[in-house]
Design a protein around this nucleic acid. Sequence first.
RNA 1: UCCGCGUUAGCUCAAUGGUAGAGCAUGCGGCUGUUAACCGCAGGGCUGUAGGUUCGAGUCCUACACGCGGAGCCA
Length: 432
Amino acid sequence: MRPQVYISDLSKHVGKSVTLKGWLYHRRSSGKVKFLILRDGTGYLQCVVFKGNVSTEVFENAEKLTQESSFEITGAVKLEPRAVGGYELDAVDVKIISISSEYPITPKEHGIEFLIDHRHLWVRSKKQVAVLKIRHRIVKAIRDFFDMRGFVLFDPPIITPNACEGTSTLFEFDYFDLGKAYLTQSGQLYAEAGALALGKVYTFGPTFRAEKSKTRRHLTEFWMVEPEMAFYDLDDNMDLAEEFLEYIVQTVLTEMRPELEILERDVTKLENIKRPFPRISYDEAVQILLESGIDFEWGNDLGGGDETIISDKFDRPVMVHRYPSQVKAFYMKRDPKNDKLALAVDVLAPEGYGEIIGGSQREDDLDKLLHRIKEHNLPQESFEWYLDLRRYGSVPHSGFGLGLERTVSWICGIEHLREAIPFPRMIYRNTP
RNA sequence: UCCGCGUUAGCUCAAUGGUAGAGCAUGCGGCUGUUAACCGCAGGGCUGUAGGUUCGAGUCCUACACGCGGAGCCA
C-alpha cells in the first residue's frame, strides 16, 4: 500500500504525486470530467478526473462512486484557488474501497428530527465536524489551563450513594445488596476532599441530571469540569474563572479559525472576551431586571429569560455574585456581611447562552455546615465523610463548575446543546 | 408536570372541502472547469393512528401517539 497523505498536510506535497484515502463528500460531473470532493476527517479536497488522463477502468470507478463511498485516490497536488481548501488533485488512479448505499443525508436541508435520528452519520457533516473539533480543542485548553497552574486531575466516582447537593433529580438504580445508588450530578464534594489532599485539583467527566427538562439548554448527560482550590476565597475563585474563560476563548480564536468560519461564527463577539469581566452582585442584577420592567421578587433565582436580559447589558461574560442563600446549595458559605447571602457566583455567557459557570466559596465551619444539613433535611450519616473535611484541618476553599456543552455551544454559536456532544442524551431520546 | 406549534414521496415542503404536486435524492441519457453544477426522461404516496361531520376530508371536529419549541428546574 502506498503511504497515505492527509488533506491537512497537502501544503507539503504541492507538485508531487500522493495517495489519499477517505470518503466521497460530494460529486459533480460534466461528461468527460468529474469533480470528486474527498473528505478524510482532516479536510476537503477537490479531485479532478479527466477522461483523457486516466484508463477507462479508473474513469468507470469514479463514475460508480456514490455519496459517502470510501475510496483511495492518487494524483498530483496543485494549488487551485477555485477549489475548496485551495488545493486540487489531478487524479491518475481511483480505487474503490466500499460503495455506499443510498446515503440518507443529502446535500439539501433536513429537519432536526431526521438529523438527530441519524446522528451517527450526521457527525460526518462539515459543520458537525467543525463543532466536534472545537469541542476537542476546548477540552485540551481546559486541561492545559489547569495543568499549567499546578492543578492535579482528581477523578470523582460516577456511582454515588446519595444525592450530592440534595436538590436535583438523579438517575437511580439498584446497587447489588447496598440498596439504591445514583449517577453523579457533580463531582464537587469529592473534589473538596481532593483539594484538602492536593491543594488544587480539578475533576472532568460526565454528570447526569434526571430532571424532566426539555429545552435547548439541557442534556440529561453532560460533561463538567470542576476545579477546587484550598485557601481560595470567592474573589480568588472569580479571578480564576475569568482567566480560565479568557484562555479558552482566545485559544479557540487563535487555533480554530477555519472551523469558526465553517460555522459562520461572528468572531468579533469572541474577540471581546478579555479580562476583566464585569462583576455585579445579585442585588445589582435584580436592579437591572426591575429597570427593564421585569416583575422580579428579591430572593428568587434568575430564570433563563432573566439571565438573557442581564447578559445583554454586557459584551463579555458577566459574573453575578452573592445570591440569596435560599436558592443555593447547602455547602455554600454565607456572606459574613449579610447572612441572607451565599458567597456564590454564576457566570452568564453573552448572547443569551446563559449560565456556563456556577461556583462558590464553601462552608468551612463544622457547626454551620451541620446546621445547614439539618435545615435542608439531608441525611447527616451520608455526609459524615464530607463533615470530616471540616473536622481535620478545615481551610477556606472555593471552586466552580463549567458546563462543557454550554461552553461549546456559546463559542460555536450553535442553537442547541445537542449539537455540542457526539451523542446527546435527552429526556425523550437515548438513541443512537 | 404545564402551555404553544407540528406530523403529506427516502429528505425538505406545497396543495379555496372537489383528479396528491415541486425541488433534492435514486435510475437512465447528455455535457472537458464544476462550486448545493446544469439539461432531458423515469420510478417513487394507506397524507401519524382511531373515530366523527359531509354527496365528497390532506384540508373541518374529537381522542390518542410521536416530535419540536417554551415554562418550571438546571451547568
